[in-house]
Every structure is written in structure tokens, then in C-alpha cells.
Design a protein around this nucleic acid. Structure first.
Lengths: 312, 312
DNA sequence: CTGAAAGCGCTTACAG
DNA sequence: CTGAAAGCGCTTACAG
């Protein structure tokens, strides 16, 4: 009657072990945390989908932790979770990925992490770089090549690295065409729809209207659409607009939005592979790349200025 | 030198225990799974946010499992995860929540679950009901009260319960005003933007144009916007449109969309509390409600028909 | 190289 | 009611 005590390990089916026992023995789970303060739901879902597909054949799970970067207990909260839950590691997206104090705390907790950010902020095997400035430069060149000369930029808030990088790329892109940025045409928004409306209104109240505007993200671009419509300014005939993100709204809005696309899902997959391969070399090869390049998607919201050769 | 073997349990700080050991002893984790086949990213993120806030002071974590309802291995995959990961329980959203076979498998695996659906499909303590028909009836009444008589409906696919419930509510709402639904004006879409465009085109090609249309969700409503714009049909002057969901796009699009709003975050909170309180009665009181009512949000896309009293 | 044993840190039935 | 002990199912250092 001795039925107990015999356990068959079914080889080839790696999912048969007990997580709890394994966690207890190894002192870490097979869970990876996604820590994010991104307000854009599509970004979050795409990132999750990408991570999950990077974790595909493995037995790792994805635990989600949205957070508020403004919270004073943020770092403590995250560290407590990491320690208590014994997360295998975490993936950080902008802008929380740019918080050096948090990362320092993670490091001293000995918690593996991968940061996603516009530029390199850390060791190569802990970073996915998105090179936002490349996309911004493409946007600027696209507008310059259409013949625009008075090109405005509505940038994001100062505390986002992407905001600086997109502005930098914008400058670079125009410089290629020997155009320089007129600072009066660079307005600061907050990456929100409302700030887009507001900045759009200010732009359209200027004595010399810009003929094109590069918005720091799609949300603000859509806000500018609204201010343009109210002011009777037609897109793209009177005003060309370029966004950044290529969210769903870019294809829903009329006219469809020319914008810069970041391969968010792929970034998630890379981040997951990087994180897992770091500590677990045998079972999973490291990702092919740790870097990703944005790409301009041209749609209906950009056209040559109406009097490209007129007296300006 | 006997430093080992002494562990202080810090009372009042419930997050100090080792998850692994607890899992091993109790044979389930403190993780709850969110199983979803929702294509709408905002729905997913709102649901996650709501669940997390329902789990707030507890030590439970949220593990995400997007899935494909069409997959033949779906049920096996989920059951394997439930069993192997020892999930505490799962929350199911439409349409996966409507899959009786999956639920049966969960039941026989002894895995607690909460289903979110338009109507009751299960025991009261395993359901969050969203009563979609109430919102649809409000939409229909709103249009009827504006004076519309030829009101179309673009419904969702057959295999969504919500699609039937929204149609039912639409009928009910019109019946209150002694209007009956003309079946020629009920078109079937797929809850996608593209199907909205297509159904919009068909509607606008009819000999007697409807003066209003209730779309089964926002995505299709936005598709109808596009077909209307192409056909030179003005919203709301020539055609009133009502959506369902109240996604972000509803406020971004021009004119802003009158639509039915479901409190998705709150639903997530309720589901989490229900799931946790079921097996863990002491630590968390059961939620106040297991039912939720949608609400019409009137914006710019609806207006009286142009010749409400004309010869129709 | 192989295999038996200790230990990971909890919970829970059980002896006192 | 209280407290010592067994057991949850793995991993890993260690003895053979």
C-alpha cells in the first residue's frame, strides 16, 4: 500500500515542478515584475504582450506593478515587494526607468533589472535603448523635405528623458537641412491631450503661424488637431502635424496622423529575454539586440506648405 | 555564536512572510490571475488597475494571462498554469468568461474564479454582472427622445454575449417609446474599427437613410464616423451616433462621441474583493455589490434629426 | 559521478 | 490553550 513518496519527474515538460518548493529552495520565484508609471494604456498592454511572448516557452510569469512616480514611498514599496515576493527580476519602463535612486535601491537589494529608456543609462545588459532622437530626426526631416520652414515643436515635460531626446532629434533633423530651430516655436506641453490643445492654441495665436508642428507624442498631436479645428485651420493644408507613438488613435482620427512608431512589443520581448538570460544563461540565449530604432509612418496629416515658394 | 534559528515575526506588517514557504505549506500562492482575451487595451489596463486597487492592502499579486479564445489548447494551457503555478484564483473577462467548458475545467481543478459578464452565468459569488442591456436601453431612449425614428444598430459578433444583450437593450429602449426595431437597420459587425467602416457604408447606401445609429462599441462607432465623413454625411446634423465603452477615443474624436460607460476599474475592484473574500473570509469583507450599471454619457455626436417633424 | 540528507520558512494537525 | 514537530517539494552542498 505504499503509494506515497514516489514522484515521477516528467522530463520535457518543464512546467511540472512546484513553484512554491522551488522558490523556497532557490529563494527567488520565477516571476518577473513589470514596473510602470506609463499613462498610455496601449503602451502598457503592448509591453505586457511583448514580455509574455519573450517568456513564451519558459515557466516565468508576469506580475504587474503600476506605480505613481510622485509617491514618496515609491522606492520603499518596490523594494519591499521585490524582497518579499522574491521576484526574479523587474523590467522598468519610462519614466520610472529613469529614477536613479530607485535603480540604486534595486541594485543594493540585489534584484536583477532591465531598464527601457531613450538613451543608455546603465550597463549594456541592463538596458533597452529606444533612440527616440532618431525618430524625432526623421519627423523633422520629413517636414523639412516637404518644404516647411516654420516648424514648431510641442515638447514633453522636463522630467522625461524622451522629451529631451525628441527635442534633440528634432534639432538634428532640421540641421541636416540647414534649418535651425526658432525657440519661439518650441512650446512645452505635458504629454497630455489637454496640454496639446493649449499649446496648439498658443501656436495658432502667433503673428507668424508655423506651417508644421512636430508633437512630442500622439496625445498632444490630437490635442493640436482639436485646437486647429476650432480655429478653422485645416490639416494638412494649413498645418502639417507629426506625432510620436503610433497609438491606435493615429489611424482612427481624421486625417490619419503621420507619426513615429516605436516597436513596443518587440522591446518587451527583448527586455524579457535580456532579464532572463542574465541569470539563467543555459536555458535561454541572450537577445540579438538591446537596441531598437523608431520609424516614421507617413499618413495624411502632413503635406507641403500651401505657399512653399511664396513670400514668407 | 548561535545566531541562527531565531526568527522574529513582525506583527502588523503582513508582508514580511516568505511567499515560497507559505505557498509550499498552503499549496496555493497569493497570486490571482487575470485571464483575458479582450482586444481593447484600455479595458485591460483599467481592469488591471481596478483589481490592483481591490487588492490594495493585501499581499496578493496580479499575474496577467492574455489568451486567444480560438486556441485549441486554451483550456489545457490555463488549467496547467492554474495547477502548476498554484494560483489562488482567477478573474475572467468577456468573452473568455463566457466559455463554459473552461469554467467547468476550472471548477474540477478546484480553482476559485470570478466571471465578469453582461448577465449572470454562475453562482452569485462567482459573478460580476455588467447589465449591458441597461446601457443599450438608455442609448436607444436617448435617440428616441431626440426625435429619431429610423434608428439603426450595428451589433457585435454572435459569440459575444454583450452583443446580444446590447441588441436586447436597444429593442427594450425603443419599445418604451413604442418604437419597434426595423431589422433591416440591424447590421452585424465584429466589434472592430474596420467592421464599423463597412457597416457604416452599407447603412449610408440604403434607400432610406437612418437618422441615428447605435454602435455596439466605440471602435465601430469611430468606423462609422469615417464612413460618414467619406460620404459627406455630417455628424450629428445628418446622422447621430452613440457608442459603447467610453474609451479615450470618445473624447478625442470630433465631434466627441455620445457613448455608454461601464465602470471597468470598479468592476475589477469588485471582482478582486469577491475572489479574495470567498476563500479568505476573515481578512477581507465581501464587496458591497456584485453588479454594476452602465451609464449613458451624452456628448456632441447626438442631436435631433434635421426634419424631426417633416414628412418621413 | 551518483545518491542520501539537510535545509529553505512557512502551516497545521497533534501531543501535552 | 500552548508549543514542538512533521511535512509541503524542491535545490544544493556533501559524503561516498
Amino acid at each position: 500500500m505504499s503509494e506515497t513518496g514516489r514522484h515521477k519527474t516528467i522530463h520535457g515538460s518543464s512546467a511540472e515542478k512546484s513553484q512554491g518548493a522551488q522558490t523556497l529552495a532557490t529563494r527567488h520565484t520565477q516571476q518577473i515584475g513589470l514596473i510602470t508609471d506609463q499613462p498610455n494604456p496601449q503602451y502598457v498592454v503592448d509591453m505586457q504582450t511583448g514580455i509574455l511572448s519573450g517568456l513564451d516557452e519558459s515557466t516565468y510569469q508576469l506580475v504587474v506593478r503600476p506605480c505613481d512616480r510622485g509617491s514618496p514611498t515609491l522606492r520603499d514599496d518596490i523594494c519591499r515587494i521585490v524582497r518579499h515576493q522574491r521576484l526574479f527580476g523587474v523590467i522598468l519602463t519610462p519614466s520610472i526607468s529613469e529614477d536613479e535612486e530607485l535603480v540604486e535601491a534595486l541594485r543594493s537589494s540585489n534584484c536583477p533589472y532591465v531598464r527601457i529608456a531613450a538613451i543608455s543609462l546603465d550597463a549594456e545588459d541592463r538596458m533597452i535603448e529606444t533612440h527616440d532622437f532618431v525618430g524625432a530626426a526623421q519627423a523633422a526631416r520629413h517636414l523639412a523635405e516637404l518644404g516647411h520652414r516654420r516648424i514648431a515643436h510641442v515638447r514633453g515635460p522636463d522630467h522625461f528623458l524622451s522629451s529631451h531626446e525628441r527635442l534633440r532629434g528634432f534639432r538634428m533633423g532640421l540641421a541636416v537641412h540647414e534649418l535651425h530651430v526658432d525657440d519661439r516655436y518650441v512650446l512645452q506641453g505635458g504629454y497630455t491631450f489637454e496640454s496639446g490643445v493649449y499649446c496648439g492654441e498658443r501656436l495658432l495665436a502667433m503673428p507668424e503661424l508655423p506651417t508644421a508642428v512636430f508633437a512630442g507624442n500622439d496625445e498632444m498631436a490630437v490635442g493640436i488637431y482639436q485646437s486647429a479645428r476650432r480655429a478653422g485651420v485645416r490639416i494638412p493644408e494649413d498645418l502639417s502635424i507629426v506625432g510620436f507613438d503610433d497609438g491606435l488613435v493615429a489611424q482612427r482620427i481624421c486625417p490619419t496622423l503621420t507619426t513615429v512608431r516605436l516597436p513596443i512589443r518587440y522591446m518587451g520581448t527583448l527586455a524579457a529575454q535580456l532579464l532572463v538570460s542574465a541569470n539563467d544563461e543555459a536555458s535561454m540565449e541572450p537577445p540579438l539586440a538591446t537596441s531598437v530604432i523608431p520609424r516614421l509612418v507617413v499618413r495624411e496629416s502632413t503635406a507641403p506648405p500651401r505657399r512653399a515658394n511664396g513670400a514668407s
